[in-house]
Amino acid sequence: MSFYLSTIAVYFCVDLLAAWALNMQFGWAGIPNFAFILTQAAGAYMYAVVALGPSGGLTAFQHYILGASLPFPLPLLVAAGAGGVVALALGLITLRPLRRDYQAAVFLLFAVIASDVVSADVGLFNGSNGLAAVPQPFSSLQTTLGLGGYQWLYAGFTAVICLGGLSLVRGLGGSGWQRALRAARDDEAGARALGVNPAVLRLQVFFIGGMLAGLSGGLLVGFISAWSPGAWEYSETFAILTGIILGGVSNNWGVFVGTFLVQIAFQELTALFLPQIGYPGLSDALVWVVIGVLWLLVIYFRPRGILPERRTRMSTLQPSTSPEMSDAD
């Protein structure tokens, strides 16, 4: 039981980081980034290959690029960097003055094709079998703490990083940068006519979101030790998005609640505690059917989510002791 709980705690922190990152891009900037999961996958893969050691070394059964065995915090930084770079590359191609629905379709194309390429090209990240036996950080602690203790330690570490992510998201949340991003989301021409350059802001939000996603991927693979194309199908982005919309777009706590409900309460807990039905894999397929239905129900009945975006009141933005309220001219 404690074993399951610590596992779930790690998953939740990872999912939260990803969801807050996607919310920046989707909620604040209005970019329908259906290729979001690519940035998480990039982080996970890069973490794995710089932690696994040279290809064909200890784990001769798998092939991959690069291959290094960097000491612990470094693979995480590499993961974050990889996520940021992939997001930036993606953004440079897709963040064009294109209709939003076309843009969404183009992102989807990238997600699907990247998955095909990585599955097919065995030399890249060991194809559809994926990478396994990725060393866990400080695995020697497992003998002293026991597996359960080690899992809780990792969960604590992930939670700390997750809190760091939250403070970043909250800090950016009320900033002029974020406001300009939202303005450009609502009316691009209007924002440009006020001196805002949306192209730069969007690349920035892509880069930051990509870094957080890459970090989440690195944290995940450091925990589960394996990563393969099955873990990052396009529908994963859809699941994260369902959590965001259910909880409340552009509301950090809404995203928290929604992610918990969709990713943890629904996906993980049902997988762990409900009895297996039918043939193996049936319940997974049904989970996706239900997520599709859930999405439809949410956008029909509660499009603003459980906790809608909070209105920023003038009184909270104004200094309580206003310098001079008299006529200036």
Binding site: D101, A104, A105, L108, S235, F238, A285, L286, W288, V289, I291, G292, V293, W295, L296, I299
Partner: peptide, 13 residues
């Protein structure tokens, strides 16, 4: 478009 994506997901699975 998002509705069609959800519909597609439901059909596929």
């Amino acid at each position: 478009l998002m509705v069609t994506l959800a519909a597609g997901l439901i059909i596929e699975y």
